[in-house]
Write a protein that binds this DNA or RNA. Structure first.
Length: 423
RNA sequence: GGAGAGGUGGGUGAGUGGCUGAAACCAACAGUUUGCUAAACUGUCGUACUCGAAAGGGUACCGGGGGUUCGAAUCCCCCCUUCUCCGCCA
């Protein structure tokens, strides 16, 4: 969520910035400004009332000690009034506060200046495109056919045991998953990230901390009995490590990486987009999360993009990097780069990574702060990115690397695969 | 799952109704002293909101949420969590 004081201080700038996200903010901001006046006034009155109550309580205590019971009892009546008054004021204060809160929560993050204007994915800016798109023969197979042909991924078995969107990986298919995870993790560790193995279920507070709750409740699997949620991404547990934390500036940047299964209900998805590995209810992903001070976050975003790029490059997949436009960027992000790889048999670009700087939007909700050397407490900036999500990488690898002899394994994976071709 | 004991500031830990936003010690930071290091001494040393130009006030917070009371870290209720013992178990 945006920072209240920033909204108040920079009203016009905020409204202007949000217009890029096609969000009309002027009315909502003005409502916030006037509610904030009420909030401050009420707070002042409330504090004054409580001050008086506290003063009287002390006086009463003193009188009792001196044995002046009658005088003390007289004062008690006064405090009863103050108590009513403070209750009323407190209710008003909390009500106003929560009104302000629910208005702020509706507001998306302000996009940074680099975010291009635009409405849809078509307006995203391609900042880089590399790698050769393989020329496959006419009878090239899409990955779901290849998966069947080589018996490495079994979608029907997943249907039987669990349901659609929960495939089994078998033999070299399973080993390919494990190899990719190892390759991604090892590269991240080489680049200075600390590896975590997080819990795969989280409590409600964590769901709120990273913003999945209350809005996207329907997107997460929920264990009713214990009121826990299956994580949609490792971002949730890894970022919530820092909920209500104040770091020292010299501890920054924090660089964490985690592999996890990810669980998404994907309510409302359908059609060709969800064929095969394109969209699953359970999939594997390695996620990088960084926490930075306010000055360095955009530089760090660049290093994260470079890290993800090295992964895709290493696999030899044709890729492009997009800077998302105002209409396509997520609610919480200030700047996002998407990575897409070309899946040559489906003949389409598949999104495999999304790397974002959230500035202080997430940190404000998390109450994640750092202390500067001169003792000031500031909100951190948080960033994260997939590095990488497996299914679409696997889809592209299978399709692009298919040959009459079998599916060629990229060199970086061979040591983990123990072979260089799936036959 | 059953029984018992706990949860206080960066750490240890005192505090069973008012004089406690919280002793003491340690750590940290600044200064003084000192050939250097160390030691000693002095001071500072939680977070948020709010009033104020500032100096400086005020309010809230002792795991979380409710309650009793003029007054709660302290009493009551619910929840979370840690430890010990028992049970179960990869």
């Amino acid at each position: 969520m945006l920072v209240l004081n920033e909204i108040l201080k920079n009203r016009d700038a905020v409204v202007k910035a949000l217009a890029k996200k096609h969000f009309k903010a002027d009315e909502i901001v003005d409502k916030i400004i006037s509610l904030d006046q009420v909030r401050r006034n009420t707070k002042q009155q409330l504090d004054d009332t409580l001050f008086e109550s506290n003063r009287l309580a002390k006086e009463i205590g003193g009188l009792y000690k001196q044995g002046k019971k009658a005088e003390a009892d007289a004062l008690k009546e006064k405090t009863a009034e103050l108590k009513d008054l403070s209750k009323t004021l407190n209710d008003k204060f909390e009500e106003t506060q929560s009104k302000i809160n629910s208005l702020i929560v509706e507001m998306p993050n302000t996009p940074c200046d680099l975010v291009p204007e635009g409405k849809t994915a078509d307006d995203n800016v391609i900042v880089k495109m590399e790698g050769e798109i393989p020329a496959l023969p006419e009878d090239a197979l899409p990955h779901w056919e290849l998966a069947k042909k080589y018996n490495i991924i079994d979608f029907e078995l997943g249907n039987k045991v669990t349901g659609a969107g929960f495939p089994f990986y078998r033999g070299l298919g399973a080993r390919l998953q494990r190899s990719l995870i190892t390759y991604f993790l090892n590269t991240a560790i080489d680049n200075g990230f600390t590896e975590y193995q997080p819990p795969l279920v989280v409590n409600e507070a964590s769901g709120f901390g990273t913003g999945q709750l209350p809005d996207k409740e329907g997107q997460m699997y929920h264990c009713n009995l214990d009121n826990l949620y299956l994580i949609p991404t490792a971002e949730v547990p890894i970022t919530n490590i820092f909920r209500d934390v104040i770091l020292k500036e010299e501890e920054l940047p924090v660089k964490n990486v985690a592999y996890s299964g990810c669980f998404r209900r994907e309510a409302g998805s359908y059609g060709k987009d969800v064929r095969g590995l394109n969209r699953l209810h359970q999939f594997d992903k390695v996620e990088i999360v960084e926490i930075s001070n306010q000055e360095d976050s955009y530089h760090i975003l660049d290093t994260m993009v470079a890290h993800v790029e090295s992964l895709v490059k290493g696999l030899g997949l044709p890729y492009r990097i997009l800077r998302l436009c105002g209409g396509d960027i997520s609610f919480t992000s200030a700047l996002t780069y998407d990575f897409e790889v070309f899946s040559a048999a489906q003949k389409r670009w598949l999104e495999v990574s999304s790397v974002s700087n959230f500035e202080s939007f997430q940190a404000n909700r998390l109450k994640l702060r750092y202390k500067t050397s001169d003792g000031k407490t500031k909100l951190c900036h948080t960033l994260n990115g997939s590095a990488l999500a497996l299914p679409r990488i696997v889809a592209a690898l299978l399709e692009n690397n298919q040959t009459p002899e079998g599916i060629k394994i990229p060199a970086v994976l061979v040591p983990f695969m123990g072979c260089d071709i799936i036959k």
